[in-house]
């Protein structure tokens, strides 16, 4: 039996045991699908305004209603998936590489590398993370790229610490000593013994922080940083709709907010499910 086939079999078991994980996986697939093809399948141009149709409540034509400019909210929510999901994916990939490598090196070598990585992580943690992200975007400029960078930076301590701890316990593991006896130097041990064992744990971390990354990106846009109108983005849409809540046009903020919640929920549940799949102790 190959490792992959075993993992697939195990994954099927975990999902079967826990329908919530199965639901999270299904949602994840849906989100990825919408992010990929969303802009091509929406019924109405998300940027086209139609003042006649402004502030209409949900109907058969406008499933999620329309906003103050008469834009179709359903189309906007669907199209925004690509942007929000993209920001989350890229920031998580960035922090995965940066934080993962720094943490693994810190945990494995110790000494000055460990001290530097530790200090950097502590410094970042000393700030309220959202405020720090705001500051970074404000300083670097109001672009999507900078939201990705800011989100990656505020997540750095989390990844670095998890990677450091996992690498540190494995540094003394029997198989690492055995690899030394087999003639492997530090770099090879790091690459072939430590990293492959820390990797799956970081993947779980990725899924868990993905939800946070989406919230962070939406939050930044909500307060006017990052993505700017008229681009469709869940955070901006909630911000725009917030003003209309009091006057009863609840759907403008509600549906993008719902999309945000479902996405965050999905990634967190997915993370829990992945943990069960990755953890070999749960296999029998």
């Amino acid at each position: 039996m190959t490792a992959l086939a075993g993992t697939v079999r195990h994954a099927r078991y975990v999902i079967g045991e826990n329908p919530v994980t199965g639901l999270a996986f299904a949602l994840f697939v849906l989100i990825v699908f919408v992010a990929l093809v969303g802009p091509y399948i929406v019924p109405i141009d998300p940027l086209a305004s139609d003042t006649v149709e402004a502030l209409k409540s949900p109907s058969l034509r406008h499933w999620f209603g329309t906003d103050q400019l008469g834009r179709d909210i359903f189309s906007r929510v669907v199209v925004a998936t690509r942007l929000d999901f993209g920001i989350a994916v890229w920031s998580v990939v960035l922090v995965f590489v940066m934080g993962g490598l720094a943490g693994v090196a810190a945990g494995f070598f110790g000494g000055w590398i460990d001290r530097i990585v530790g200090r950097v992580a502590d410094t970042i943690m000393a700030f309220p993370l959202f405020v720090l992200a705001m500051g970074i975007v404000a300083a670097l400029g109001n672009t999507v790229t900078n939201i990705v960078i800011a989100t990656a930076i505020v997540n750095f301590p989390l990844y670095a610490r998890v990677a450091r701890a996992e690498a540190n316990v494995r540094r003394e593991a029997g198989f690492v000593e055995a690899a030394r006896l087999s003639g492997n130097g530090d770099v090879r041990i790091l690459a072939f013994q430590i990293l492959p064992n820390v990797f799956p744990i970081l993947v779980v971390q990725m899924s868990l922080t993905m939800g946070y990354a989406i919230l962070n990106a939406a939050g930044l846009s909500f307060i006017g940083l990052g993505v700017r109108p008229p681009d469709a983005e869940w955070g901006i849409m909630v911000a725009e709709g917030a003003a209309f809540m009091v006057s009863g046009e609840w759907w403008i903020a509600f549906f993008p907010g719902l999309a945000l919640m479902v996405a965050v929920f999905c990634f967190n549940l997915l993370g829990d499910g992945l943990r069960d799949i990755v953890d070999p102790r749960r296999r029998t």
Partner: peptide, 9 residues
Amino acid sequence: DAGESINPR
């Protein structure tokens, strides 16, 4: 511990 001294992967 032979189990611990072989890389699980």
